[in-house]
Design a protein around this nucleic acid. Structure first.
Lengths: 345, 345
DNA sequence: CTGAAAGCGCTTACAG
DNA sequence: CTGAAAGCGCTTACAG
């Protein structure tokens, strides 16, 4: 293979100047339609592609956006949170659709965000995908703001108003889950999941749950909340503690599917029938959810839509357009674990 | 925020020439240690980062590699094959470790590979992650070769010797799965999975399975092979067909975990005890596997290692070093579905 | 050990 | 409608 064709090569063959080639390839109306087409044909023949480095250097942008995944520290290193993975897929798609490239990186490996990305002109904007309160990242966030980097974070509204956040409405999600359970006649609903401010997502789900109870005039029993982090093991443990305590309950709403799956394992092991004796509703609708036994009723976050909004938002930021934080509504996926359907296949 | 600092700014402050700054930042021994350090301090103060576009343009490389995911056409559009997702994670890590960036793209969205990547100087090399025989991509593969693009594909050895492939040893994986089942005393082992050449991975797993049977002098019963594609539904269906047929079997080895999970659902529904009556072994060790009920015994492909090898291989290609195709050994993850352990939690 | 200069391949005012 | 020229921010022979 001979070395890559440049616009000069094309200019030579087309018998025009390099500037004209450049214009023609960008389809500028300035250049005569006929010459334009002739140039484009030659370009195709030579398999010519604009050199992005040169073009970006000149235009001072990169047409790529960076996705920084701040992995959930509660997960073991080898496995990415399944919800993130799903977001990754939708963000990749949305980015491509907008004609941008996506640079992916995991946070633990790089300690200097702005450095690695926008400052080195590799990305025009950044999407931060994390779980939790971003407290560990606060300092870096500040740095990003200070440098007026274009970035958007996934999650609950941030206390720093300069940070643009896009997230699913966890409060609403918690509300509909519990409301559903109440409508099915369940009265004592336990909540498994950290309710501290360290986990804003979980806390908001908890708060939504509480609001549903209050709205339906059910007493809130603090005894029915158990902390759990986002793992199967933690759900298993929390459910066992709940069982050991001896408090009566006929349903469990968990802050994540992983917790729900662990809880179901504990219930089954103790001979508790799901959903007959205890209904279970999870959160996230990760792929595993539909394969659980019984199949898990869960709150689904629309990752496809979320990815689109996320990408659209950074792009707006980059273009200097108006953007505001956004909460995406969730919806309930009803399967068998809540007892709403009788067919328990 | 003032505009980004350049090497000229640093040169000005350090009272040296821009060339010296460039050398100092690359830690060239040519420049006096003291000046070098002084310059580096200033660079840090100014939060300076080398402009990648300029640097890449000048050096004629991009320090990034592109990952093209050719999605399994049997999966529905919204969900990526979990095995790929896991590979994506490990490739991301491996790439970062080598100081390269990773550009991710899904195949359906872009029809012109070489165009979008190497030719436009955005990536120095390409990793193709696909499932199957790459027949649909043969034409494009040819184009890549023709353009002497640096690329490596995931999967079985390709019939075109010019293509460098890295993959797990599916034959060996099939072998150890069946061998394990035989050692546990199972005699009639069904195989669920396409055994045609359209699915070279599945076919090799099947062949390994057959070899294990032959080695242990068990008759091969063609009746015990059922086609299935890589979905839960397909596994469910195949297991039902098997059950309907009325042939006796005491174990099932499936070409993927998704198939295994569907098969287990069918077995349970028909009242067949797993693993007591029928042992099941899957393939992939996707996250769901450990949550299945019973927890799935499966053949694990070491994705972390595979990702490293993949990245290492493209890099070698890029550097013009010697590389050869590679088969990575798999290993068995023994859980409950094969009946090897009695504790069925 | 350091500087002046060329050049990577584009895009885009500027002039015609 | 087209061309000559500048310049994006680097890296690296070349000369000293």
């Amino acid at each position: 293979m001979t070395s890559k064709a440049t616009s000069i090569d094309i200019a030579y063959r087309a018998g025009v100047s390099q500037s004209t080639v450049s214009r023609a390839l960008r389809n500028s109306p300035l250049v005569n339609l006929e010459t334009r087409q002739r140039i484009q044909v030659i370009a195709k023949e030579l398999n010519y592609k604009v050199d992005k480095n040169a073009s970006n250097l000149r235009m001072q942008n990169s047409q790529t956006i960076a996705l920084l995944i701040c992995e959930d520290p509660t997960n073991d290193d080898s496995m990415i949170n399944p919800f993130f993975l799903s977001m990754l897929g939708s963000i990749t798609r949305a980015t491509a659709q907008q004609g941008y490239d996506l640079l992916v990186s995991f946070q633990q490996l790089s300690s200097d965000w702005h450095a690695d990305y926008e400052d080195s002109n590799k990305a025009d904007g950044i999407i931060l995908l994390g779980y939790g309160d971003y407290v560990d990242y606060a300092h870096k966030l500040d740095k990003l703001i200070e440098q007026s980097t274009h970035f958007v974070i996934w999650g609950a509204e941030h206390n720093n108003k300069a940070v643009l956040s896009i997230g699913c409405d966890n409060h609403q999600g918690g509300f509909i889950a519990t409301e559903h359970l109440l409508k099915l006649g369940r009265k004592q609903i336990a909540f498994l999941g950290d309710s501290s401010s360290r986990s804003p997502e979980f806390r908001d789900r908890y708060l939504g749950h509480i609001d549903a109870l209050i709205k339906l005039a059910i007493n809130v029993d603090k005894q029915l909340q158990y902390d759990a982090i986002n793992t199967e093991a933690s759900g298993y443990e929390a459910a066992n503690e709940l069982l050991d305590k001896g408090v009566a309950f006929d349903a469990i709403f968990t802050a994540s599917d992983l917790i729900a799956i662990g809880a179901i394992r504990a219930l089954k092991q103790r001979g508790v029938l799901v959903p007959e004796q205890v209904a279970v509703v999870g959160y996230d609708d990760i792929p595993i959810a539909s394969f659980a036994n019984p199949a898990l009723t869960t709150v689904k976050q629309d990752t496809r839509f979320a990815g689109e909004i996320l990408v659209e938002s950074v792009l707006k930021l980059i273009r200097g357009q108006e953007v505001s934080p956004r909460l995406i509504q969730t919806n309930l996926v009803i399967r068998h674990s809540c007892g709403a359907t009788t067919d328990n296949s």
